[in-house]
Design a protein around this nucleic acid. Structure first.
Lengths: 199, 199
DNA sequence: TATATATGTGAATATATATTCACAATAAGT
DNA sequence: ACTTATTGTGAATATATATTCACATATATA
């Protein structure tokens, strides 16, 4: 077989993305080196030219997740200065992100990812906290500007923000796409934002 | 070795519970027949006297989950007739339930449980929908009694209800218990219930 | 162009894990 | 007490999967 030889950086990228997609389509259990290799058009042992471990592959995939989440925050913060509108847009982008890559929640919320990997566990924890902090920051700013009611903790809001999406995303997946995430999120946002608004 | 011989029903019970606990402490990947057997004080092959498969064991564990969830609804509905108070109590019980058995969310929300098991997937979906329906029923009743604002869909409320707990539970676990679920849920409930109340 | 380094291959190895089966011991029914 | 069905055991089997290694080939560099 004559397979094109590519730079290890390119391969690392390919492999990490493929891993994320594999988890999306076949779950964490479905992430095997053999399948991963096939997906990239390589032979299993070739993966080890670019990653020391299967663990390193997963860690790389987690890097993409972090980037995807934080990028969304950056984007919406540039689009608008109204904090509530900012949150609304982030909500939409977040739904879009995990709809397009179901591997994200599966990795973030799968215990099998951390078990026996305390460093990774704290890393993912930091990623989630980081994201929530950004959301909380938007809330705090909105409160300072007097556009969000001041009697609620930003940290509480940011977690409830996640809570609008996550259970819905799971139902969406369990129902094989039958459950309408977008609809739910819109409804939830309506009540949530009404509550947040200063009267 | 002289191991006590017990009725298959007793063993099934033991094994299913042990499976749930194993998932709680070691994740789904940690649920091996060997470990399971050791936990119950048996030898791996003995499990097959009481279950055809590892899959059957998991299915039995899922049965316990369903029971646990629905029992909570029954309990709180008996305790009080005020729908908001009913939801508040259910919230507390729910947190208690998953704190005491982290295996519940891990099984319900782990994709590896369904992958390649469409029947199980729809079963779990039905369980979750069933629970949400009960919650939605409480809301609907509250609306009929005029104690919950009528301009919000019960289905939306019930999912948001879950959303108060689930992300918090995950943070709780990722932080090794450092994150205070109860505190978050109390705060979240404060804002949520205030919104639901008829003004 | 020659040589070295990076990348890809195929076979081999090691390990974990589910599952089966022949046999042993215990409990239940007669 | 005797027989039988149920439950437990230990060894054996099968399979999946990560990982290694000697070898091959392409790409860059001198």
């Amino acid at each position: 077989m004559s397979t094109e030889k590519l730079d290890t950086e390119v391969r690392q990228d390919q492999i990490a993305r493929a891993a994320l997609n594999l988890v999306a389509s076949h779950g964490l259990k479905g992430l095997s080196m053999a399948r991963l290799a096939r997906r990239v058009g390589l032979v299993p042992s070739a993966i080890y030219r670019h990653f020391k471990d299967k663990d390193e592959v997963l860690d790389a995939a987690i890097g993409y997740i972090q980037k995807g989440l934080l990028d969304n925050v950056t984007v919406v913060c540039k689009e608008t200065s109204d904090p509530l509108d900012c949150l609304r847009r982030l909500l939409i982008l977040h739904v879009k992100l995990i709809r397009e890559n179901q591997g994200i929640p599966r990795i973030i919320f799968s215990e099998d990812v951390y078990n026996g990997h305390p460093e990774r566990k704290t890393r993912v924890y930091e990623i989630v906290k980081g994201y929530l902090d950004r959301v909380g920051g938007i809330v705090r700013q909105g409160q300072q500007e007097g556009r969000i009611r001041p009697d609620v903790e930003p940290a509480t809001v940011s977690l409830m923000f996640l809570g609008m999406i996550q259970p819905a995303a799971i139902l969406w997946h369990m129902s094989d796409g039958e459950f309408d995430v977008t609809r739910h999120v819109e409804k939830a946002w309506k009540t949530f934002s009404e509550y947040l608004k200063t009267k």
